[in-house]
Amino acid sequence: MTRFLFCKEGTAVWISHLDLQRMFQRAFNRAKIQIAVTNGFNPHAYVAMALPLSVGMESQCEILDCRLADESISPEEAAERLNRAGFPEGITILKGYSSDRKLREIGSLCARLMMEYDNGVPEGAEERIRELFLREEITASKHSKKKGQIEINIRPMILDVQVAQKNTCQIEMTATVQAGEPSLNPELLVQAVTRYLPEDRPDAVKIRRLEVFDQEGNAFR
C-alpha cells in the first residue's frame, strides 16, 4: 500500500472531506498516476483516508492510502509528481512511503486548540480549565446519526490535556484524544469549557491536528 502524509491548512481547511476526495482524484489524474480498482461488479478505486478532518481544522498529519495501478512508480516519486502537478493552496504531500500498517491501528491523535479571547483571557481561566479536565466526568452533547443529539461522557476519551496561557489573549490547549472507533472530536473540549466554565468561553478557536498515534502511543506512519 502506498501511503501519503499530507497537510491541510490555509484556505484548504474549508474543503470538505467529500470534496477533498474528489480533489485528490483529479490531482492523481493530473499527475498521470492511476489508482488500482477493485475487480468487483462495481469497481471502485483502492483509496482510503484516515480520520476525516472537520471543516475548518488544520492538520499536518493527514493520511491517504492507495494502491497504484502501476507498481513501478515508487511512493516517493508519486508524492513528488503529485506535488508538482499541483494542489489547491494549503494542500501539500509531506511524504510518500510504503506501509503495511492498517489504518485501524490508529488509536489516538494529538490536537492543538488555540482559544482566543478578544477582551483578554479572564483572570484564572488557565487554572480553571486545567482543573476542569481533571474531573471524573465531563458531558458534552454530540450529534449521532441514529439518535440525533445525545449526551456523552467525554472524559474517558481524553488521554491528556495540557493547558497554557500563551499571552494576554490566547490559551493553548494541547490535547491527546481517542481516535478510531470511536473518535473524540477535539471541538468537544471547547464545548466542555463553554458549558462548565461559561465565563471562560473563548471568542474563537483554531484547531490543528498535530499527530496521530497507534495503540501504544507511538506516532502512526
Partner: peptide
C-alpha cells in the same frame, strides 16, 4: 459550503 468563499483553488 465555506469553500466557495475563500479561493485558493488549483490554477
Amino acid at each position: 459550503k465555506p469553500a466557495r468563499y475563500v479561493g485558493g483553488e488549483y490554477r
